[in-house]
Simulated scan of single mutants.
Amino acid sequence: MRETQPNCRTTFFVSRHPGAVEWARRQGLRIDRQVDHLDVEEIQPGDTVIGTLPVHLAAQVCRRGARYLHLSLEIPPEARGRELSAEELDKYGARLEEYEIRKIQGTA
């Protein structure tokens, strides 16, 4: 666990895909920590998490007071299930979209 300091915010980029990591670098994003898998317990209020998290993890990020930026793109069926390059991410309209996600209490 990192030490909590006033105004110390961390930007996490969550991806195990080299093409996505390269895409983020080319965008000039300020990334403090690139991780293959997110440990939600490390997230502090004011942090930013960028990635393609499952909805339940994105909800946990938001519940902890952090921002969640989803790496969205339009992948055609023939490109699914394989590694994409940074160029392909651009081709498929890669962009960051901020979401606020919360679980509705009392649901199954």
Rank of each mutant, 00 (worst) to 15 (best):
M1R: 09
M1K: 06
R2P: 04
R2F: 06
E3S: 09
T4N: 13
T4C: 13
Q5F: 11
P6T: 08
N7D: 15
R9Y: 14
T10P: 02
T11Y: 02
F12W: 15
F13Y: 09
V14C: 13
S15W: 00
S15G: 05
R16S: 15
H17N: 11
E22K: 14
W23K: 03
A24H: 01
A24I: 00
R26M: 08
Q27A: 05
Q27L: 08
Q27Y: 00
G28I: 01
L29P: 00
R30D: 14
R30P: 06
R30G: 08
I31N: 11
I31D: 11
D32E: 10
D32H: 07
Q34C: 14
V35R: 10
V35Q: 11
D36K: 13
H37D: 15
H37Q: 14
L38P: 04
V40S: 14
V40L: 07
E41K: 02
E41Q: 11
E42S: 13
I43V: 15
I43Y: 05
I43A: 10
Q44N: 14
P45N: 10
P45F: 07
P45G: 12
D47M: 05
T48Q: 11
V49D: 13
V49H: 10
V49L: 13
V49S: 12
V49G: 13
T52F: 06
T52W: 12
L53R: 03
L53K: 04
L53Y: 02
P54K: 12
P54W: 06
V55A: 15
V55L: 15
H56G: 08
H56W: 10
A58V: 04
A59S: 13
C62E: 00
C62G: 06
C62I: 06
R64D: 00
R64T: 02
G65I: 01
G65F: 03
G65C: 04
A66W: 01
Y68I: 06
Y68A: 13
L69D: 07
S72P: 00
S72D: 10
E74L: 10
E74Q: 12
I75S: 09
I75M: 12
P76L: 05
P77E: 15
A79H: 04
A79D: 12
A79M: 09
R80T: 14
G81M: 04
G81C: 05
R82P: 03
R82V: 09
R82L: 06
E83R: 07
E83P: 02
L84W: 00
L84Q: 04
A86P: 00
A86R: 02
E87H: 10
E87I: 05
E88C: 04
E88P: 00
E88G: 05
L89F: 08
D90H: 02
D90G: 04
D90E: 14
K91L: 15
K91Q: 15
Y92C: 08
Y92L: 06
Y92N: 09
G93F: 02
G93K: 11
A94Q: 04
R95L: 01
R95W: 00
L96W: 03
E97D: 14
E98F: 06
E98W: 05
E98Y: 05
Y99L: 15
E100G: 13
E100D: 11
I101S: 11
R102T: 09
K103F: 06
G106T: 01
G106P: 03
T107Q: 11
T107A: 14
A108P: 05
